[in-house]
């Protein structure tokens, strides 16, 4: 485009660097980076800092690429939902074609570079994660079943396993436990969000549990998943990635989380509307802290073990 064409009003707006960065879902990427780093450092194999840095970077790029592909496919839903209307595609900053090309290019780059930087098992796991999030969750499950969040949550749970695979070249019970922790955490986290953002999902026609099975059922589901999550989270204390520090953190957080889920279970929509979903919003905020602190505790245990402390 020449300077003269600047006066042509029919031109589409050009995306800025920040618009492309926003396509990577930076907030989700921080979770990916953190959990992958914990998975990598908790593994019983020392990895060169340069390889740690490069591997985490390419795992983050892979996670971001799947976010861009998710935005490409879900542009129609994002345009309807208030929470996502300002994303780069619905706001007209980036075209769907640009997002698709960006996502595909970064997916390929991240998988190949992770394979070259660490090992091809970890790269294969990253490739599967991108495939799972984009094809299985975004294209298939999200618009088809109210269990979308349950199964789709697996995509967000893979990063610690990838981190572990970078260090060890394989899978073990510890990495599967870290996967399960995020996997079981995802449904109550998103269902709490769906309870107080219900209009959004209704309007977009996404079959969230709140829409298909009703809000009472969603409250029961949140409580049941939270009980199962608490058993898993506290049980992890007694494995090789756990220890006294992790146990203390897990007990406190799970008591708080169970209390939150119980409050949500006990109340009905009238009570929630009356205080603008205070309990649901509180539970959602706590869920963010919950996952962060559990993985922080795993990291602390791993660091302590390097100094001959930590663990049982």
């Amino acid at each position: 485009m020449s300077d003269a064409s600047l006066n042509n009003p029919s031109l589409e707006p050009e995306a800025s660097f920040g618009d492309f960065y926003a396509l990577l879902k930076p907030r989700v990427m921080t979770l990916v980076v953190f959990t992958a780093l914990v998975g990598l450092l908790a593994a019983p194999v020392a990895v060169h800092p340069m390889i740690v840095f490069a591997s985490i970077l390419f795992i983050a790029v892979g996670g971001g690429a799947s976010g861009a592909l998710n935005m490409w496919w879900d542009a129609d839903i994002d345009a309807v939902m208030k929470r996502t209307q300002k994303r780069p595609i619905p706001s007209g900053q980036v075209t769907e074609g640009e997002a698709l090309a960006f996502g595909v290019a970064l997916s390929g780059l991240s998988v190949v570079m992770l394979g070259l930087a660490s090992n091809w098992f970890a790269a294969g796991l990253l490739c599967f994660t991108i495939f799972f999030y984009v094809v299985i969750y975004t294209m298939w499950l999200k618009r088809w079943t109210p269990q979308n969040i349950v199964i789709g949550g697996a995509a967000g749970a893979f990063p610690p396993m990838i981190g572990w695979a970078v260090a060890t070249g394989g899978i073990s019970i510890e990495s599967v436990l870290m996967f399960c922790l995020t996997f079981m955490w995802t449904p109550p986290h998103f269902w709490a969000l769906a309870l107080f953002m219900r209009k959004d999902y209704d309007n977009a026609g996404v079959p969230m549990l709140t829409v298909t099975h009703g809000r009472r059922s969603t409250r029961i589901h949140i409580f049941v998943y939270t009980v199962l999550l608490a058993i898993l989270a506290v049980g992890t204390s007694f494995t090789s990635i756990g220890g006294p520090v992790y146990l203390a953190v897990a007990v406190v957080l799970n008591v708080l989380f169970l209390k939150g889920a119980w409050d949500i279970f006990r109340r009905d929509d009238d009570a929630s509307e009356a205080d603008n979903f205070k309990a649901e919003r509180g539970f959602f905020k706590l869920s963010l802290l919950y996952l962060f602190l559990h993985f922080s505790a795993i990291l602390v245990e791993a660091i302590l073990q390097r100094f001959g402390l930590g663990g049982w």
């Binding site: 300077d3 600047l6 050009e14 995306a15 800025s16 660097f17 492309f20």
Partner: peptide, 20 residues
Amino acid sequence: MALGKQHEIHTRRYGRNLGV
């Protein structure tokens, strides 16, 4: 608009090119 004048789109392209 004069061709030599700095347009918003120039700033945006500069930022993008610098970032890349």
